[in-house]
């Protein structure tokens, strides 16, 4: 609830600059961590940088008033997926120290594509949404409403998703078991 209150105050008109300040701080941290993640020579460090990025994204959700998504992000990504990733690192016996061969030699292709993508996206975003503001009278989107939405409008998608999860579970077991 603290986060929620924080978000609510932050989003009120007087507190908008606080929210903005928070956002830019978080965004900077996230971008730096993301850059470190894709460039570090140490697999475990990369995982830890990913942790930072994911927490920052969760904080962004709070700023946007999506408390439930933020909570889910923390639970699923930070709680479950990160642990899985670390397991993956350990089970494949990656070098725990520095590894000079983590990147391959054609880094320039990746940077070219990445920078090109960023350029196209930022240009078009700038062109299309320049000056658009979020509604200032913003109320956090309540978990209850999200739940109602999921279980009424999107019920079929929800059921399909549950089947998908089951299939993934079975698939993962079948693929990974020793036989």
């Amino acid at each position: 609830m603290n986060l929620l209150l924080q978000a609510e105050t932050a989003l009120s008109e007087t507190g908008e600059w606080i929210a903005n300040g928070f956002f830019y701080l978080i965004a900077t941290v996230a971008v730096v961590a993301a850059l470190k993640m894709v460039s570090t020579k140490n697999v475990v460090h990369a995982a830890l940088y990913l942790l930072v990025v994911l927490s920052a994204v969760a904080a962004t959700y709070v700023i946007l008033g999506a408390e439930f998504a933020a909570a889910t992000q923390v639970l699923v990504y930070l709680g479950a997926i990160m642990v899985l990733m670390l397991f993956g690192v350990m089970l494949t016996r990656a070098k725990l120290g520095n590894d000079e061969e983590l990147d391959h030699d054609q880094r320039w292709i990746g940077s070219l594509v990445g920078v090109g993508m960023l350029a196209v996206m930022s240009y078009s975003l700038w062109e299309f949404y320049q000056g658009e503001r979020l509604p200032s009278e913003q109320s956090p989107q309540r978990t209850q409403e999200v739940a109602l939405e999921i279980f009424s409008t999107y019920i079929v998608a929800f059921e399909a998703l549950s089947v998908l999860l089951l299939a993934a579970l079975i698939g993962a077991i079948v693929v990974a078991r020793k036989d």
Partner: peptide, 26 residues
């Protein structure tokens, strides 16, 4: 696979450029 991925993303960028600059009047 990595090379295929580069081609795919690269092509996506090119297509996006075409859409944004050639076709995309605001």
């Amino acid at each position: 696979v990595r090379q295929y991925a580069s081609l795919m993303f690269g092509a996506a960028v090119l297509i996006a450029v075409v859409f944004v600059f050639a076709l995309g009047e605001r």
